[in-house]
Design a protein around this nucleic acid. Sequence first.
DNA 1: CCGCGGGCCTGAGAGC
DNA 2: TGCTCTCAGGCCCGCG
Length: 293
Amino acid sequence: MPELPEVETVRRGLEPVMQGARFERVETRRHDLRWPLPGDFAARLEGQTVSGLGRRAKYLTVDLASGEVLLMHLGMSGSFRVSHEGYERRPGKYHHEQPQHLTHDHVVFHMSNGAHIAFNDPRRFGCMKLIPRGRLAEEPLLRALGPEPLGNTFDAAMLARACRAKKTSLKAALLDQRVVAGLGNIYVCEALYRARLSPKRRASTVASRAGAPNPRAVALVQAIRDVLNDAIRAGGSSLRDHRRTDGELGLFQHQFAVYDREGERCPRRRCHGTIRRIVQAGRSTFFCPVCQR
DNA sequence: CCGCGGGCCTGAGAGC
DNA sequence: TGCTCTCAGGCCCGCG
């Protein structure tokens, strides 16, 4: 499910209910997420106070007063739901739902301020991990991540450098979290569309030549930033699983120009192209073959 | 080192 | 209604 805008939406939803609160009780209803939760997972959290919430690429970080960090990833289908009325009486995803929506609530945080925060993840590709703050830099899951696309260090020169030696397509390069961290299939397609660049183009063609800045890299960086900011403003994209922490839908799917729009007219003014779907590196790519070159 | 394909899981939707 | 098949916002790992 979630790419950077969805994870950031979740972070913003969790922050007001977690920051300053204490984990009173932690329920681990299933231990077999992407990696098994450690046996002492709940015990290490209980009693801890949350000093802040952060995000690195598609990872959420919960800073604990103890100096440990709770690192969480939503995988493909993970979501968090906050309730104040008590966990068991929390409404289901759909009105007709009986308490089976509990089936995929694998971890529940009962906070000292009365908030109940349930992590739901049908496909169990998500993960949670506790790491001492001092060892965050060497954490294997974070270690190889490239720059934050909305951060100050990410610019055309950096993107150009990261793509220089790449033999793959531009699409595959942007999905590579070492090049830039936080994009997934939707936002790569949308950013390439906005930058008018073909997903099939070799990644190395956005690299600089003879030290001169490459206008393609400049456009791409701007397109990436714009699409991510627009998506965050809309609360992310809700296709299947993504919800805001209050259960409301994200709305950015209504602004897709190409993603999941195979066969439709290209929305760009005066472009008469038709959106195509191709498969690259095993994933669907949507693009306009006329205006994306 | 790099790039690719498989695999991890469940559920939704299409087609028969 | 029900079965089978394909596909899905991600990412680790092993192979060549």
